[in-house]
Design a binder for these strands. Structure first.
Lengths: 204, 204
DNA sequence: GAGAAAAGTCAACAAGCGTTGAATTCTGGA
DNA sequence: TCCAGAATTCAACGCTTGTTGACTTTTCTC
């Protein structure tokens, strides 16, 4: 087995880039472990030592590759909400589409740990909260700007965020039984009309 | 001044209970400092030492009175949502009433640090999350049980929680500009119809 | 005013943290 | 086979944390 791995690494070195170099493989292992720990524990409780242990390497190696815990966090959280192009979607379907996309991004085909990391850490870490506000401003408000009257984009986007982040909070972090135990489709059916109203409905 | 204080304490001891005994006054000072620190920093980042410093006493005294950090937290967080009696309220006003009460509980006349403590800490601390689930089950679901068909209470309560906690999350913790900078009344007007629908509206 | 009890302080502990630089092992090319 | 350089480990640093027990000071009772 060691021999097989050796050959494989050798292959990796010669083909250059198709396979990853050894250092890049451990870098990726560190990033993977970091994402899982940050997602499960939040920034403060996740320690360099526990991340290194999960990646089966020495803590010092983490510093060698990522300089500091903060820099590791920044590298681990490269947020892309992957918001779909909504231009061709009928206006009355926008709420359902966005809600389903959001759930899919958290627990479906598009899911990874990044959103969990961001939300869990933003609550106690002002820098991460800053990051989340940036993501929000750049990605959500931008999409909404094309749908809503200019003056209303930020307001409507914030309302959408309050419902969708509230959904994530109660379903994934707090796991309230009334919402965490139901199917993705059922929850989406309940929430979608709210999002629809925030996107396109009349507001007082 | 010292003399005056001494007289005041003397008075406290003789009238028994109208004024607080010295130990109960420092106990209260510790609790106050603890609530503020827990609210601002969350359970993990708030330290016994910083709480003691804010109360101008020695860290060891905190242990003397509250045994451990966990026990101090439990004492500091005695949650009462102060949910109003909704029995006399017209059904169509329930959403607005509940939404306004919630905002009032966070930032108005009924506000204290307890909800902030609970939410901020529940996100990274499973025990606190447990506590929040209990509060939710005992207080919110109980009120809803009298308004909704038996089988729907938990589901509707969770939907209400997803919107109202989402509001608290985006307004008080993340402070998204589109929702944190607006007036209480404006936000209530946007959110109330959603809550109304979750409480009494038709769900698919 | 003496003595007991309560209130509060002090110094230290063991453990965990992020971080560092020197020492060691591994590995691909001459 | 040997060696340079990359990859990795080791041991330690300074700091903060919750917690403890011995000590001193304040306060109340007789």
């Amino acid at each position: 087995m060691t021999f097989g791995l050796y050959l494989w690494y050798g292959d990796a070195m010669t083909t250059e880039g198709v396979r990853l170099s050894k250092s890049e493989r451990t870098k990726a292992a560190i990033l993977g472990a970091a994402r899982e720990q940050f997602a499960r524990q939040g920034y403060d409780r996740a320690s360099i030592r526990s991340i290194a242990a999960q990646a089966s390497i020495d803590p010092a190696l983490v510093m060698r590759y990522f300089t500091s815990k903060e820099a590791l966090f920044a590298a681990a959280v490269d947020v892309d909400l992957m918001l779909p192009d909504l231009s061709g979607v009928p206006v009355e379907d926008l709420g359902a589409r966005l809600t389903r996309h959001f759930l899919d991004r958290w627990e479906g085909a598009l899911s990874d740990d990044v959103l969990m990391i961001l939300l869990r850490s933003a609550v106690t870490n002002e820098q991460v909260a800053d990051r989340l506000r940036s993501v929000f401003a750049e990605q959500v408000v931008a999409v909404l700007a094309r749908l809503a009257p200019p003056g209303e984009a930020e307001r409507r986007a914030a309302l959408v965020a309050s419902q969708l982040l509230g959904l994530a909070l109660t379903r994934y972090l707090l796991r309230l039984p009334g919402i965490a135990s139901r199917s993705r489709e059922d929850v989406a059916a309940d929430i979608a009309p709210t999002v629809q109203r925030y996107l396109t409905g009349g507001l007082a």
